[in-house]
Amino acid sequence: MNIEQVILTGLTNGSIYALIAVGFVIIYNVTGIINFAQGEFTMLGAMIVISFVDFGFNMITAAILTIIIVMGISTLMYGLAIYPLKNTKNSLTTIMVTMGLGIVITGISLLIWGTEARPLAPFTGNRPITFLNASISHQDLWIIGSCAVLVLFIYLMFEKTYFGMAFRACMSNKEASRLMGISTEVMAMLAFALSAGIGALAGIVMAPVTFAEYDMGMMLSLKGFVAAVLGGLTGAPAAIIGGFVLGILESVGTGFISSGYNDFIAFAALIIIMLIRPSGILGHKSIKKV
């Protein structure tokens, strides 16, 4: 296995992790909640888009419908289970609630789609493209490409629109933004919806490569969270870098050790990095006020 191939594979996986990590970071910065059900949005994205395609929809319509549905599910989840906790001081409760929601979503998917891995045809051609010393499939390019487009989209949205400004205000100072007339509850709901949309997109583009399985959400949540923490949980760009770092680490591990140790490597890296730099690769230290 050559190094170019390892890096390219890492970038592909890393793009998926990056997308999930961005979802984590958006919700965390707006609400202070770590949504352990984040990976379920990705699982749902993959499952639902496959169902639409099987139903005879074309890829683009299926993708758009899927993203809308997953965003709806996320909003519902926020309204039913997260919003009622807004006065809870105990962050352990929200951790456990999102964890529980993840399990419920997994279970319901099992009821609907069963245990079999479900395939999806690649969006475009099957023939791999040779690039430098490595070969890359069309679908891998779709994955990396959509990650890039999304990064651009998020950047533009956050920096150039009024909505983005309100969002950033909410992220940096909740009290002040409330005084400015921005409803933190509405922002929190939008954060859940936006993260779900990003997660679903990740699921859609990855489905042809990994297939879709009802129980893949939990591990994706964890990997996404690892990526977000590696980036320091501070902002989308850091989360994306965290995603790539994780992806490349894993592909190096797979290439040189064994794919059975993939998860082991990911978490070992997490623990080591948290010990050396508790604030993440790019994060800043924060101080609790007493």
């Binding site: 929601l101 319901i108 009821l111």
Partner: peptide, 22 residues
């Protein structure tokens, strides 16, 4: 239905208890 369904019940139970009888 297989044994996996138990986990939905646990997840649901966890969420409901946390929300309604913390």
């Amino acid at each position: 239905a297989g044994g996996e369904l138990e986990s939905i019940a646990y997840g649901l139970l966890l969420v409901l208890v946390l929300l309604f009888i913390p």
